[in-house]
């Protein structure tokens, strides 16, 4: 088998794994968009905030230490305890639910019936706020996140592929874990949406706000629930990306990676987010592998967008999006 083809296969597999991570972020967008029509730009920052909070709780950091030190001239940094990972994740989840409740009560309750662009701008404002808030609360330095997920090259795959192609594939253990977690998450979400009472209520709200209200579904409750779910997805994405490349500001930029995924898959479809993520992940890695060296590299920044753009010209609602019917 020619060498180039083997390399391409490795790139393909890695692209698939990266795609799963993109899909994970895109999922948070889809959840909120379906249930409340809000295009939540803050999803990436929520992932950053969740990861920051998780690290902060695990390390026993004092919240707002920098601010307190600046105001009162004290020198405090840590409580001096370490919280086990599982408990810290649970505590972070509580924080994210609280955040969801606050966001809904303070911001979006007052913006019901506004145009989508206004809601979108509000989420950008929220993103700015959370970014500054997270940095003030936990400090802006790059942090290492380790919740005990396996990392490094997967020996088994390396050996097996070496036996077949005479060349061992480099697949990160973390990527495999992420794939499994993402698959489980999607499966759980679909089950939740299809078979539980709250899930059905959520779909009803997504379908028609007023009709849902008239059969006795509490919009407020559903919205808080959806924002909490998105917070949960953000936490999972934050753990995966944070373990991979450290908890830092650039984590919030994964939102930008998820946007072309959404366009490709359709804003309203959960399977669309997954398939779109896989296509984008594989597409950009293969493009970088094949064309990148010719044009100076770093094509990953824009390739996904151009791919989605070209695709949308032929199918404006995305792969799985609901058909857009326009009436005068």
């Amino acid at each position: 088998m020619p060498e180039q083809l083997v390399f391409a296969m490795e790139v393909f597999l890695n692209g698939l794994m990266a795609g799963v991570l993109y899909a994970l972020v895109a999922l948070g967008f889809v959840l909120i968009y379906k249930a409340s029509g809000i295009f939540n730009y803050a999803q990436g920052v929520m992932a950053l905030f969740a990861a920051l909070t998780l690290v902060g709780i695990m390390e026993g950091q004092v919240p707002f230490a920098h601010l307190i030190n600046a105001m009162f001239g004290t020198e405090i940094h840590h409580f001096g305890w370490h919280v086990p990972a599982l408990l810290a994740i649970l505590l972070t989840m509580v924080v994210m639910v609280g955040l969801a409740w606050l966001v809904n009560t303070i911001i979006f309750k007052h913006l019901v019936n506004q145009e989508p662009i206004i809601l979108f701008m509000a989420t950008i404002g929220l993103a700015y706020f959370l970014e500054g808030f997270g940095d003030i609360m936990w400090g802006a330095d790059i942090k290492k996140l380790d919740v005990g997920l396996p990392q490094g090259i997967n020996e088994a795959i390396d050996e097996v592929t070496y036996g077949i192609f005479d060349y061992g594939f480099f697949i990160d253990n973390l990527d495999i874990v992420a794939t499994v977690v993402a698959a489980a998450l999607v499966f759980t979400l679909i089950i939740f949406a299809q078979y539980t009472k709250q899930g059905r209520a959520m779909r009803a709200v997504a379908d028609d706000h007023q009709a849902a209200l008239s059969v006795g579904i509490s919009l407020n409750f559903i919205w808080v629930m959806v924002w909490s779910l998105a917070g949960f997805v953000a936490l999972v994405a934050g753990i995966m990306w944070g373990t991979k490349s450290g908890v830092q500001f650039s984590l919030s930029l994964i939102a930008l990676k998820a946007l072309p995924v959404l366009m490709l898959g359709g804003f309203t479809s959960i399977p669309g987010a997954i398939v779109g993520g896989l296509i984008i992940g594989v597409g950009e890695k293969l493009f970088e592998f094949a064309i990148g060296p010719m044009v100076g590299g770093a094509t990953e920044n824009w390739f996904a967008y151009v791919l989605a753009l070209v695709f949308l010209v032929f199918r404006p609602q995305g792969l799985f999006g609901e058909k857009i019917i326009e009436r005068v």
Partner: peptide, 17 residues
Amino acid sequence: AHLEFMIVGALIVVFLI
């Protein structure tokens, strides 16, 4: 700088509301 982020973000939201 961080506080500025917070205030700008909060002002935008307040304004939109």
